[in-house]
Amino acid sequence: MARPRSFDEQQVLNAVRDQFWDAGYAATSLEDLMRVSGLGKGSLYAAFGDKRQLFLRALRAYTDDNHRRLREALAEAPRALDALRMLLEAPVDDSGGMRRGCLLANSTSELGNADPEVLDHAHRAYETSTKLIGDCVARAQREGDLPAEADPIELARALLAAQQGLVFMSRTGLDTATLTATARSLAARLLPDHSGA
């Protein structure tokens, strides 16, 4: 009989995700994966497959978690306009956590030209994010805070591009005050309050 697994699968996925996130795919070795997971090669490959399969699984889990958190954050805000502004301010992080950038964007930059599966995953992930943000834009329009004639998907793409730009700028070491001012400037231009309040 096969022995039951004696490790926490989610913990292992989180550890290897962080390794890929910090070092990138190419610079992460099998030894790195064994070190951070605490598993031997046989156990690691038996549970998750080879390095590429493990990376794709960690990337999908990261994306699923991001979409879950985005969905919750957009839905929980009392007004949709506040949620959209929060989206732009999210990359501004005093703790330095965003200095790592976005694992999906990092991975797409590194592997997108060489790995069609990574590129396809990134495309679908950004389309999902755009749809979630677009739904929030439509809500802000219904609440009277954004002009009704604006195309929700076009504005959502602009907001996502702005947010990803801020994430990238944070990776360059730009100071928090400058990032905050940039985020507020983007919010003022992309999300002017039309409620008259």
Rank of each mutant, 00 (worst) to 15 (best):
A90E: 09
D151W: 07
E72C: 00
Q163V: 03
D115R: 04
Q141W: 03
H67K: 09
C102K: 04
L174S: 03
L70N: 01
A73G: 09
D64I: 02
S29T: 15
E9M: 01
D135R: 15
S109V: 04
Y45F: 14
L30R: 13
F48L: 02
T28H: 10
T172Q: 05
D32Y: 14
D82E: 11
A15V: 03
Q164I: 11
E127Q: 10
R184E: 11
E154D: 14
S29W: 05
Q53L: 05
M98I: 07
L155M: 12
P91W: 06
W21H: 15
S29P: 06
S95F: 09
A83S: 08
D115G: 08
L74C: 00
A197I: 06
G144A: 12
G144H: 11
H194S: 15
C136T: 11
Q19H: 01
G42R: 08
L191C: 02
G165N: 08
R100E: 00
T108S: 05
H194D: 15
W21N: 04
A75W: 02
F7L: 01
T108I: 02
E127K: 08
Y62L: 03
M86D: 15
L111I: 03
Y126T: 07
A47H: 07
D18S: 08
L160R: 15
L160A: 14
A47W: 05
E72A: 08
H67L: 15
L84R: 02
A47S: 14
L146Y: 06
E127G: 03
G196M: 04
D94R: 15
A105G: 05
L59R: 00
I153P: 01
L44E: 08
T63M: 06
A122Y: 09
D151K: 09
V118H: 03
G38S: 12
L111G: 02
Y25C: 04
G173I: 09
Q53I: 01
S129R: 13
M34W: 10
T108W: 08
D120P: 01
